[in-house]
Design a protein around this nucleic acid. Sequence first.
DNA 1: AAGTTAATTAACTAATGAGTTTATTATGCA
DNA 2: TGCATAATAAACTCATTAGTTAATTAACTT
Lengths: 114, 114
Amino acid sequence: MHGDTLSATFAALADPTRRAILARLTLGEASVSELAGPFEMSLVAVSKHLKVLETAGLISKSREAQWRPCRLETAPLRGVDDWLETYRRFWSESLDKLEAYAASLKRKEEKDAK
Amino acid sequence: MHGDTLSATFAALADPTRRAILARLTLGEASVSELAGPFEMSLVAVSKHLKVLETAGLISKSREAQWRPCRLETAPLRGVDDWLETYRRFWSESLDKLEAYAASLKRKEEKDAK
DNA sequence: AAGTTAATTAACTAATGAGTTTATTATGCA
DNA sequence: TGCATAATAAACTCATTAGTTAATTAACTT
């Protein structure tokens, strides 16, 4: 991920409406109107927010009749996660904690898989 | 971390100059002039970038004679890390990998400590 | 006291961003 | 064909942002 991509990602995430849209999309695909529903702003405004997210690669759109189902794309978020890596040592004093956390996640995964 | 703080954090990070400043500060404290050195823009411009970072809580400034040493503050980055948590399951297909990575880091830490 | 260095403040310009309303495109349905 | 729905595009307003230069504050130096 090169610098401009990271800038576009952060800029896209710097808006609560857009973050709320991403959060909604963790539950599954949704059309533009469905995504606009909860907000007080116009549909056009939400459509523009979606354009920003799409340009940043954070969502993709498909076509289904007159609807454009949107779905979450996480590649840019992985970019953020990678970028954060440099800074984690400043707050994760104990790598033991990370290991313990990973182990607890794994236990949960195995339990959920049953 | 409430919503506006997260927005301010992402907005502050959405600029390559500011991210470069943060990267520099991982090496230790630096004055405004020292931070401005590598950039082609004016000192005033860098001073403004530092103001944005300070307002977002990403750096703090102290006083030493006529200098204002800046240092990295990672609380907002931890906020980003927490926010990312919701999305990690979309790309960390294998938690085994995370566990293996944590273990390898721990081994390195123990080796380095010798 | 006078001058130098470090940094901020003030005032301004140009570009970008978020929102609006109105118009247009494209699909589905009677 | 004609109409309703879903979404985008165009044109515009208002606020914010990134940068500039010039002026100001504060501390050290001679």
